[in-house]
Amino acid sequence: MSRALFQERMREAEAAVEADLQILERGGELSDPLEFAARYRGLASTLSIARHRRYDSALVDRLNALVVRAHTALYAARLGRSARDGLSVLLFEFPRRVRALPGPLLLSVLCFFGTYLAAFTWVRLDPQAAYALMPASYLDGLAEMYDPKGRIQTTERTLDDDLTMFGFYVWNNVGIAFRTFGASLFLGVGSILALVFNGLYIGVGHAHVVERGFGESFHAFVLGHSAFELFAIVLAGLAGFHVGFAFLRPGLESRSRAVLLRAREVLPILWGAFAMLLIAAAIEAFFSPRDLPFGVKLAVGSVNAVGLLSFFAFSGRETRAPR
């Protein structure tokens, strides 16, 4: 068959696929989706024939472009995931993945809480060390924030203030978590640095505020949300370690493939950490600043911490076959 005749014969099939694509690419629905799949397969074999006969690139490239578009439209369908699927990933798959990675979890906990504890202890033993570790402006700012006689810890806080702070916490905290993971590719060193720095900041700040005598108002503020917030950062670090260490110990895969596979494994953890930080930001903005008795704050904080730990210990453990 000559090229011209071939082109003539396929023009109709091409136009049909093009018409379907016009609808699909605008987000419309086809009256007969199965027919589109059949047309796509027909066009795909036309492309193969055109290649096999070594028709010129103008013809083959145009067919190829059309088949790629049809391929994209056809496989876009498999992305459709219901909200229920997303929820089951967060509730069951997320804690399951965390439990499956005890090594990186331990390392992440050590990097973050280890630094936190060390910095806290150091500054409690030698209060002046705080000024060696952190700029005075940071320490004074913190002290001012938690001073019960100061202008920030007041009962006159309005809903507007809460919303401002909610925006700030989401922007700042989720940004920190995402960066902790995003810096992981340098063999995990980026995540180590992010965790250690954050542990240091918080540890020194905590000890310094206690040293100044504002411990009670500080604890009353942070108890409610700290479990969600701090553990989410640790989980972002965990995800970073799992991916970053694939360079060092790729196992049976090639290095690039190991990184790719592990990144997929930690995706539920990233979504989970994101969700935890949203919860933390909501608590921190709307509950933590409320002027409630210390006992109430302590109770809420404890329930949160225990609830979170048992979520990670038990959720998703049933023997129901995984999808």
């Binding site: 309005t158 203030d161 919303l163 401002t164 925006g167 700030f168 989401v170 922007w171 989720v174 940004g175």
Partner: peptide, 17 residues
Amino acid sequence: EKFGAGLLLLVAFALEW
């Protein structure tokens, strides 16, 4: 002003990530 600041930060977060 304060409500706006919170909204702006949320939008900045969404735009960035």
